[in-house]
Design a protein around this nucleic acid. Sequence first.
DNA 1: TACTAGACGTA
DNA 2: CGTACGTCTAGTAC
Length: 971
Amino acid sequence: MPTRLASVSETAKLAAAPVSDPVPNPEESLTGLLETEEDAVQGDAAADAPVGSHAAPVPSGAAQSGGPEATDAAPLGTVNASGHNRLLVIDGHSMAFRAFYALPAENFSTDTGQHTNAVYGFTSMLINLIKNEEPTHIAVAFDLDTPTFRTEEYSEYKGGRNKTPEEFHGQIDLIIKVMEAMRIPTISLDGYEADDILATLSEQAADRNWDVMVVSGDRDAFQLVNDHVTVFYPKKGVSDLPRMDAAAVEEKYLVPPDKYSDLAALVGESADNLPGVPGVGPKTAAKWIKQYGGLDGILEHLDEIKGKVGDSLRANIEDVKRNRRLNRLLRDLELPVDLDAMAARRPDRDAIEELFDALQFNALRKRLFDVYGEEETAADHPELVPPVHVVLTGAEELRGWFEATNQAPAAVQLVTEGAGEARDAVGLALVTDNAAAFIPLTEIDAAAEKVLADWLADKDAPKVVHDFKSAYKLLARRGLHLAGEVDDPAISGYLIQPDRRSYDLADLSLTHLKLSLDAAPDTGNQLELSLEGEDSATPAVRKAFAALRLSEHFAGQLVERGANQLLGGLELPLSEVLAEMELAGIAVSTEKLDALLDQFSFTINQAKEEAFAVIGKEINLGSPKQLQVVLFEELGLPKTKKIKTGYSTDADALADLIVKTGGHPFLAHLLAYRDAAKLRQTVEGLRKAVADDGRIHTTYAQTVAATGRLSSINPNLQNIPIRSEEGRRIREVFVVGEGYETLLTADYSQVEMRIMAHLSGDESLIQAFRDGEDLHRFVGSHIFGVPPEEVTSAMRSKVKAMSYGLVYGLSSFGLSKQLSIPVDEARTLMRDYFTRFGAVRDYLRGVVEQARKDGYTSTIEGRRRYLPDLASTNRQLREMSERAALNAPIQGSAADIIKKAMLGVDAELKKQGLKSRMLLQVHDELVLEVAPGEREAAEKLVREQMAGAADLSVPLDVSVGWGASWHEAGH
DNA sequence: TACTAGACGTA
DNA sequence: CGTACGTCTAGTAC
């Protein structure tokens, strides 16, 4: 038996469409502009690759089994009551096609344009089968796009089929990737079809007395049915899979399964392009089979069959014999995968997360994990069982416990009650390497609390705290100061892997420790607890334990990635600074908020009425869907940019329409409505966020932005309007609080361009910054070849747009669009820019090149961002990563700098014993609340700390303003 | 009730 | 066909 083995390519990238990838026009994008000569040559070579000829994109291999990891890959299913193993085998191609035609391709695609309907349907079907049938073993067989013994005997075999639809391309590869992630072996064999593999597996399993479930959209599979083997044959789509056992086959085809192939040979199979005997249908065929015992009997008695059909049979008997040869499935192939290797295992959770993220399968992810139930629990792994905890309430007990820790790192985990402003810490779990304790905060006396307070505030008592900032704030509300933090696994995890979706303790534990916190394993912790805190103790102990283990786990990786200094010297201390800022909040004037609310509401109503008057009816102006009807159907306005749901009604599109329609009155009213509605929404959000103390306390997310920036939530105070006059008025509501003299704002000017100048080392840019020139005017004069004073405002704004665009990887097309100039002009602008500032071009080119080589970009503080998709064969993914690579070092370095500045400002305020305090950070701006008499000192130290936060080859300019409101203090 | 799409605010 | 975010509303899927 000839077999040829090869493994499925591990490197086939998600959503890959390598051969159909057009090479970018080097002039069309920044990354194109940056392409080196060699890159361009490679690109051309790629362009010569065949296009669109990959009908069945299965890797030219044979077998692939799940990953080698053993820890969480233990067999899942258990033999059923009858003692049988249950093998589920699937014909991959036929089911993928069924899924493809069952679900509309246009409803299933990723942002990158890869269709996923077949992948979705297939995976969904598989999940249902696993759930309902509980197989103990699973495998999926695929056809290869190579000749088989059938096509060699009969070249028209399966001929006449339509070409594979464009939308199907790549989906088989994706299904294989899903199978890999689910640790389900996929099998294909050169020269044979998937059905032959199914037949062989059925035979092998039957030999072992297993039950077999074959899933195939190919009727030939019916010949496999017997007492052990049933076939699931799709009736409609892939969700309705009737179970075809022997009785069902016989009922439908009038012959028992082992005679089905005889019947098919006589009747023919149009799907395989096998003609049968004209005039003979299933009924006649079945009658003969019954009468003569099968095809062999019919052949023996060929002459006895009377009538026209008899003549027809004799005339076509060679076809029938050929059909029978071709539809017989081979049951004795030598397969590269053993049945035992098909044991159902837990999916590779990391791989599923990554893959389903890319495929945007969110509901499926949940369904999949639901089927597999809880992960293995701590109880399965002794090393993951936390030490048994003691409950500490007395001062002496506490003192003794802390002394026994002997300065070993202890993880701290709070137990809280209530939510929002009322959230309060009621208990505290402590875990060291060999001991665990729980302290019911609400139960302990003053003496005990004093012991605890001293330990918590002890800088030399090292602590690991997951989400340190929250814990710090909660304890602060109880008058407890938390110090001595040496790690926060959320932040360590973020520094190691800054674009993870979540740094939840439970998520991190699952991925890195394979430890589930949700399950409540019996840890053997049978302590008799008589306190109210007892219920919450064990989960909290487990969390603290997980935090400690995570910290150990991350320690090595932090060193490897050079992130230790970033953690201990920047992010952890910043965490405390942020906590204080959040606790402080910023005072707001609710009167002003209410006045603005009224004002915006008035504008909204006015705009609404006027808009309705124009179209003669009332619609919901906030509904893009209804707007589309009015604009493009009823008013018949020209079509705008296409979006998923029709045509865009966004501000850019409306501005275009205004030009094209010569200023349709409805559009102006609509824009006015939109503006006011957005502002009112902002004001309403702020209104709701005012706390009892009359201040708004935002929360800074320290582990969200992949570049290293902070983000602000609940409410977001980093996107308060400033560009429009009406919007800017919202800043009037943020005011100086009682007991303070003024608000002070300090911001970096053009920090990103300065970083660009520094990193690129471009001498003329650096000189311009050193000379304190107007950057855009300076650049403009170079590009347009005029003296600086002759740079017009139009020239200046073009330059400004381009300079900032560079930092984002802007293309000439994008630039032309933004400036409403021809692409040619934009292209010339960019070329001139790079001619004048060659070092910038070299730098940007180098960044992407280096990132491709290293797999990550770095900021001036060594903060990394990993960009695996730089190597993607999918152009859209790759180019997105290239732009991210251009931007990350610059945006990230700016983030590093202001973070350092914040530490400096905080330290200096304390050192000088000032009462003034930082309230807000808005990426390149700090807002401080200044205590009486401290304005000058505060301004001086803020300027010094901000300007001195980095040692660049250009100065860091800081501008400062002050006033009673944020609006007034702005500049 | 939970999610997505569209829109739009900031640096 | 410009990076990084968060929030709201409408509309739909569950």
